[in-house]
């Protein structure tokens, strides 16, 4: 995601700030590349890291657990 006037969104977890998302105004060069006139159009872009949010929500302290495909883990959802 290439944005200008951008922000990072962090959540506090275990006494630390953990980045969970980013947002901002779409870079005019990106708008131009996909056929919009950046003088006429602006865009807002944002994205969230779902694993980190899920990890925080369910108290999963190793994010790799989401990708181990262990059904003993998966069946809890």
């Amino acid at each position: 995601m290439d944005v200008r006037t951008s922000v990072e969104v962090d959540m506090e977890w275990g006494g630390r700030w953990v980045e969970m998302g980013g947002a901002g105004m779409v870079d005019p060069a990106v708008l131009e590349a996909v056929g919009y006139d950046p003088d006429l159009v602006t865009g807002f872009a944002f994205g969230l890291g779902v694993e980190r949010i899920a990890a925080r929500r369910y108290g999963v302290d190793d994010i790799r657990d989401f990708f181990r495909n262990d059904v003993r883990f998966l069946r809890q959802f």
Binding site: R4, T5, M25, D27, P28, P38
Partner: peptide
């Protein structure tokens, strides 16, 4: 080097 860069400076 672009207008949007100055907008970002003002915003932050």
């Amino acid at each position: 080097w672009r207008e949007i860069d100055l907008v970002e400076e003002i915003a932050r």
